[in-house]
Write a protein that binds this DNA or RNA. Structure first.
Lengths: 149, 149
DNA sequence: TTAAACCTTCATGTGTACTTCAAGGCAAGC
DNA sequence: GCTTGCCTTGAAGTACACATGAAGGTTTAA
């Protein structure tokens, strides 16, 4: 598959794919006889992984370091696991922050005033609701949002 | 409160606060007799809101348009609501993408091989797990992660 | 009264993550 | 044989979101 097809398949621009290869976010790509990139499914999966991590807010630099460790020949399973664990924590915190922002907007939508400033009382109620939510994790699917999770 | 205190209170740099004011992400800030910014809790809340939306991935430009509509004198409650709804959808999708990436990493962590490439079979299993998760929303708190929500 | 520690505006610099441009090569169809 | 459409590398340009620097003002403390 040439770079254009790979671009269409992944939604990542050709230039970005070249850039990712140069930055070692994906492995060196095989070339055809005339020097064109010949992209296989392994590369496609790596591009998809990079896209996912980028969307999760990981910088190119961190992602490069990250991948470097995983691609190394040495068996550094321990470090790899703790690195994964670390990244997972970051992403979970990010997800929770995002959820808090979603709750905030949902609150605004449900208690709609004529301006968007959140008052002290509203903030206190939000905090209360948040505490409730964390406390009684049993009572899921309360009423407000169409949560997918 | 002066800009430095506001900066410490919000975790946003003084330069960024000035920038936000210039870009109308926060309302015009009152000045003291000598021309220094005098920041009150209303501004602090707005800065916090901006921070939250920025962390949720909203660009300065979109945030500006967004806030503009809310601050307008006219009663455009309908448009405001649909704008909120729209932004909520974007954020929920982002959260779900993030969750998918978290699931992916969790999977890697639990089925640890000597490299990080996800195979076709693994991807298929991930998809299957995801389908399960969506299907039986009742069986919450499965086993894998320390979800806050 | 002079230094420290704040502040102001305006202009310019910076890092990230690409995008775009320039110059050229290969293969197919007219 | 020439245009079209793909590709290559390398260099330079761009957008965003601030950070930093210059030049100057005010207040407090020694």
């Amino acid at each position: 598959m040439n770079i254009k097809e790979a671009s269409e398949k992944t939604g990542v621009s050709s230039a970005a794919i070249r850039y990712y290869e140069k930055e070692s976010l994906i492995p060196p790509i095989d070339r055809t006889a005339v020097g064109n990139r010949d992209i296989d499914d392994r590369i496609i999966r790596r591009i998809t992984f990079v896209t996912q991590m980028r969307a999760a807010g990981m910088s190119i630099e961190n992602l490069r370091r990250y991948i470097e460790l995983f691609d190394a020949q040495e068996d550094n399973t321990k470090e790899q696991k703790s690195l994964l664990q670390e990244q997972l924590s970051v992403m979970e915190e990010k997800r929770d922050d995002l959820q808090a922002a979603i709750d905030h907007l949902n609150y605004k939508l449900n208690h709609f005033y004529d301006h968007m400033e959140t008052t002290e009382e509203e903030l206190r109620e939000l905090e209360r609701q948040h505490a409730d939510k964390v406390a009684q994790k049993t009572t899921e699917d309360s009423d407000e949002s169409n949560n997918a999770y």
